[in-house]
């Protein structure tokens, strides 16, 4: 099939950037979206133009690196997959596809479609862990956890940190990402010791990074490639206020 691509090009973070239009032809429906980009990039290099920069790594939907906003939806038109899992059979011959980077103050553009998502790392550094050192831990089976709780924790823990939730939210809110980690550790017995300080610190960092507020539109949940539920956001709100009211930190 033949396609028209409108792609955001921006030389670096200081550059103003703008859209460029490209034509690609003979695209196989079996190609992944990123493979179509590979073809385009080979085409660009062969005609002495800079290839389009985009983040990608595992190309099997788990590393969370790929991050394209395609025709108005993070990770493209299909639900519950990442961009690298999107295949060209989801498009038709003659389509025009607009590709943009994630847009958020907390995710500044580095180059073309590459954005800086280190804000997520800083939020995890604020408390997304259990503070235990290597060794000296109890035997694994000394902490019984019901199947139900383990599943609930796992549902939240499948987050790949891609940032599609932020990209889709009209407020560029990171609540789904943060609440997934808070939830995972709030339901598990291992997370109880630092339960209060964790949520307090993670929310404070989230705010400081410049993400917006959650207005419960549910767009994050709708585009999440791992289908993480906004129930986690409700839980985080609960955790946050319980912590704020009862913790001894003034």
């Amino acid at each position: 099939m033949n396609l028209t691509l409108k792609v955001w090009r921006q030389k670096n973070s200081a550059d103003k950037g703008g859209f460029e239009t490209y034509q690609v032809s003979n695209i196989s429906p079996d190609m992944s979206f990123l493979e179509m980009f590979d073809v385009l990039n080979e085409q660009l290099v062969n005609s002495d133009q800079d290839p389009i920069h985009f983040d990608h790594d595992c190309r099997e939907g788990i590393c969370g690196m790929c991050s394209l906003y395609i025709n108005g939806k993070p990770h493209g038109p299909k639900d519950a997959i990442t961009t690298c899992q999107l295949h060209m059979r989801s498009f038709s011959d003659g389509d025009t596809i607009v590709v943009e980077p994630w847009r958020a103050k907390a995710f500044p553009v580095v180059k073309d479609l590459v954005v800086d998502r280190t804000a997520f790392d800083r939020i995890i550094q604020a408390g997304g862990y259990v503070s235990i050192n290597t060794g000296g831990v109890p035997d694994a089976n000394e902490i019984p956890i019901s199947k139900e709780v383990a599943n609930e924790a796992m549902d939240a823990a499948t987050c790949i940190g891609c940032g599609a939730c932020v990209a889709a939210c009209k407020n560029a809110s990171a609540m789904l990402f943060v609440s997934a980690k808070v939830s995972q550790l709030a339901v598990l017995p291992q997370g109880q010791v630092e339960r209060k300080s964790r949520v307090e610190n993670m929310v404070a960092t989230m705010d400081a990074e410049g993400f917006g507020a959650c207005t419960n539109t549910g767009a994050c949940e709708a585009v999440c490639p791992k289908e993480i539920s906004i129930t986690n956001i409700a839980r985080m709100n609960r955790e946050y206020f319980q912590a704020k009211i009862s913790s001894k930190k003034i």
Binding site: G72, A104, K105, K170, A172, G212, G218, A219, A222
Partner: peptide
């Protein structure tokens, strides 16, 4: 919330992902 996204998208977020009123 507006400050959280200083540069808007060219194509607005697809309407199917959330309700109009929200």
């Amino acid at each position: 919330n507006q400050q959280a996204r200083p540069v808007a998208y060219k194509v607005p977020v697809k309407s199917g992902t959330s309700s109009l009123s929200s």
